[in-house]
Structure formats: C-alpha cells, structure tokens
C-alpha cells in the first residue's frame, strides 16, 4: 500500500477562477501546465455552491466579490491559451451555463480547448439540453459516479469518455474515502477501462497512499484553492511536491 508510484497517478489541480483575480487565474493555469499537470480544473464561482465544501465556498465568495463571471473566466482561459495547451476542465453549476446559453457555452468551450465540463448539479439521468449541445461541439461532459451509485454504475459510465469522475460522500475522512473506493472501483472496472479520477476534498498532503492505490488519479478541490492567494509559483511548487 505504501509503494504507490505517485508519478503514475494523475493529479488534477482545481483552481477557483477569479480567486484572487482573473489575471492570477491565467497565471495559475500556465504555471500548473508548466509544472506538468495533464489536466487543470477551473471551477467557475457560483453564489450558492451546494455541491462544494467550505474551502471552495469561501473562494467563490471572494471571486464573486471581485466581479468574476463566466465571460471573464473564458477571457482568462483565452489569455492562458497563448502560452499553454494544457487540457482544461471547467467545473460549474448548471445555471451558469444555462444563462450563457447551452449552445453558445458549448461552442465557446470547444473554441478555447476546454476538453471536459463537469456540471455539479446535472445528474446524467436528467433530460436536459446541455449534454447534446456539448456533444455537438465535441466537448466531453464528465461522467460522475458516486458512492451512492453502488450497484447502479453501468448506465452512468455507458457514454463516458476521457475518464470517470468518482465522488465520495462529502465529509468523509481519508480512511472512509479509501473504503468507499475499494467498494466502488471494482464495479466501475466491470464496465469501463477509462481512468478513474476521484474527487478528494481533504487538505491532506501528501495524498493518503490508500486512496492513491485505489484509483488512477485524484481531483484535489481543497489543496489548491486554499493556497491560491500565495501566488502561482507556490501552486506549481505544491503540484511538483505532490507528484514527486
């Protein structure tokens, strides 16, 4: 268990756009790309982030106080594209994309090289027009499997591409997350060979080996937002430390 080869795992850093500023968001994307990230997740701030923990909630408040909106986030990503071609995931709530317009949103994502979109409050079972718009634009809508999906994983991963995003029960400690992954991952593996990336909302650094051992990668949505105000050099150092 302690012999996990971190270098073979995908570490997905999450940053909250506009925290502390959109200019810094551009710098952070570039820095993380240079530090070797294969995918950078940019979380779009929302007034009521029901699906997020306290760290992202606080970052969202700061970002919105700075006047951050989706058009600004797209502009910040466009700026970063001048210097990096790192794959970018956009993580957001359905209303933000809806207000932008499903088709316009999907086409803008495609134009900016946003490869993946995770909509936190759009379950795959809901019949909404956004998934078709993303598909038409060639952008992947991230397939989500959670601990509560146990025994019903098959339909959730049937149309998945790029990777499977696994969400443990919020508030779980690292031991509980590892236990949940041990139950869930074998069922996912029965239905797909795509890499499994688990959301880890823990401040634990280094990432607990029992978690890393169970999956192909982790999506760290606490570690990086908590360090965002320290500057992009600090974020890339943190990323390198995590992957060393």
């Amino acid at each position: 268990m302690t012999n996990v080869d971190v270098e073979k795992k995908t570490i997905v850093p999450v940053i909250v756009a506009g925290d502390p500023s959109l200019k810094r968001t551009t710098e952070q994307i570039i820095a993380l790309g240079q530090a070797g990230a294969t995918l950078v997740a940019v979380s779009v701030p929302f007034s009521d982030p029901v699906g997020d923990g306290p760290v992202i909630q606080a970052a969202d408040v700061r970002a919105l106080d700075n006047g951050t909106n989706l058009a600004g986030v797209f502009a910040a990503i466009a700026q970063a594209r001048a210097e990096t071609d790192v794959a970018i995931q956009l993580t957001l709530y359905a209303n933000v994309a809806y207000k932008y317009g499903d088709t316009a949103f999907a086409e803008k994502c495609a134009a900016l090289g946003i490869t993946d979109v995770l909509v936190l409050d759009l379950p795959s079972q809901e019949d909404d027009p956004l998934p078709a718009a993303l598909r038409a634009a060639g952008v992947n809508l991230v397939a989500v499997v959670t601990t509560n999906s146990l025994h019903t994983v098959a339909p959730l991963v049937a149309d998945a591409a790029h990777f499977i995003f696994v969400m443990p029960i919020p508030g779980s400690n690292s031991g509980a997350i590892a236990d949940q992954l041990r139950l869930l991952v074998p069922e996912i593996r029965q239905h797909t060979d795509l890499p499994i990336i688990a959301e880890i909302g823990l401040p634990d650094v280094p990432i607990p080996a029992a978690i890393l051992a169970a999956v192909d990668g982790v999506y760290l949505d606490t570690v990086f937002p908590a360090a965002a105000s320290a500057g992009s050099e600090k974020l890339s150092a943190l990323f390198q430390k995590l992957t060393a």
Partner: peptide
C-alpha cells in the same frame, strides 16, 4: 421542474 441535483443525491 426536473431533478437538478448532484449525482450523489439522485439515487435517493
């Protein structure tokens, strides 16, 4: 209407 919730809540 609809069921716009995190996937975690959908099965319940």
């Amino acid at each position: 209407g609809g069921t716009y919730v995190p996937e975690l809540l959908y099965p319940e």
